[in-house]
Design a binder for these strands. Structure first.
Lengths: 215, 215
DNA sequence: GAGCTTACCTACTCGTGCGTAAGGTTACGC
DNA sequence: GCGTAACCTTACGCACGAGTAGGTAAGCTC
């Protein structure tokens, strides 16, 4: 019989990609600690020393996953949010890109959102990344207001941005567990919430506590 | 010198409380896997076999933490939400109780929100708990609408509840990192967002995509 | 087809941390 | 004041998994 080796020898770049894909899958279902390098190697169809040779230690591997998925997510969003469009349009495009990404990269999303947040060495960096996104959203809100001649204290803007991002994450997480849902529809639902809500809110309508006994 | 033993012998119930308190603290800063039973025992000022004797395995201990903190949180909220009050008032009281709880039990919150979600054996139970809360919120929204003579499809209600809960969690998480912030003020901010937003939204104002090129 | 490089593997070491066996100490009943 | 039961300890067994040493073979160059 001719040369049909069970396992072809592949160039490094291809293997690295396969390993990262496998690592994201395994990390997404096990978490950082519970995932073993053996299982990742197995999932990638390769042996453990190869993973160490190419991607380094377990922490470095997880960092690489976080970095790749985080970059992809960020690029998907900033690529969709064209700068000179009006606020509403940018928000809509950003949300749609976000939900589309989560729908298409559920594993990556799970690693970023469910697994990365608790693990000690990575939580900080991840929180910083999230905070950067929130600042961007807050900036969008601020510019949306400035264009309207209004003004809101930065602290309140930040809280609002936290609420908006948190709401989106929560709905995205729902999407990750409902493969049949349409990301664009969800983005529309979020606009229902964020735009109608934030829009009216920023237009000056503030909620005030009822006069009833406050304790 | 009289009898001043370095370590008094305490009744079981007291020790169990101390151990759970210590476990919540350690789990909150390390996560489930990275936390060691030795460190928990040390934090509780007791030796490891005592932890096993009273609380069982590490998984059982973590489950106990999750259960206690989750029950406390739930009780704080349902205790604040008096059934017969109007929708707005219940929402306000529920949010305020939630933020007050997080402000007063940062460690417990961290275990529930940051650590529990990713860890395999517990994620499911925790997700179920969260889902129960979301159902309650969805029910509140529904009753709020019904009282207003309106009607919304259950699926949309659920999405909205996810957004609301996610927004609250995100702001609560911000609170956990900002000890000086006032929980009641944050609850007010959330009402700004949720009430003004959801209120207008549920009153029939829906956002619709702009006519611009949709890709 | 000799010789080098790169891809790849089997089979180990060794640290860490869960869980436990076996024994010491304190308080309390009588 | 002594037995005994509950409390508490030190010191270990053992499994699991990160990381590695050392060896094999495929493909390339000439």
């Amino acid at each position: 019989m001719s040369t049909t080796p069970a396992f072809r020898r592949l160039p490094r770049a291809v293997r690295e990609r396969q390993m990262l894909d496998a690592a994201v899958r395994v990390f997404s279902r096990r978490g950082f600690h519970a995932a073993s390098m053996d299982e990742i190697a197995d999932e990638a169809g390769i042996s453990k020393p190869m993973v160490y040779a190419y991607l380094g230690s377990k922490e470095e591997l997880f960092t690489a996953c976080l970095h790749r998925e985080g970059t992809r997510l960020l690029e998907a969003i900033v690529g969709a949010v064209v700068p000179d469009l009006p606020f509403e349009e940018r928000l809509w495009r950003g949300l749609r890109a976000f939900f589309r990404f989560v729908g298409a990269h559920r594993d990556g999303w799970a690693v970023l959102y469910r697994q990365g947040r608790g693990e000690r060495p990575f939580a900080g960096e991840l929180a910083a990344m999230r905070h950067r996104i929130i600042e961007v959203v807050a900036g969008m809100l601020d510019r949306g207001l400035a264009a309207d001649g209004r003004e809101v204290r930065p602290a309140e803007l930040e809280i609002m941005a936290y609420a908006l991002v948190g709401a989106s994450e929560s709905v995205a997480d729902w999407l990750a567990d409902h493969p049949d849902a349409d990301p664009d529809v969800l983005a529309g639902r979020m606009m229902d919430f964020a735009w109608t809500g934030a829009g009216n809110l920023l237009a000056g309508r503030r909620w005030s506590p009822p006069p009833a006994p406050t304790d």
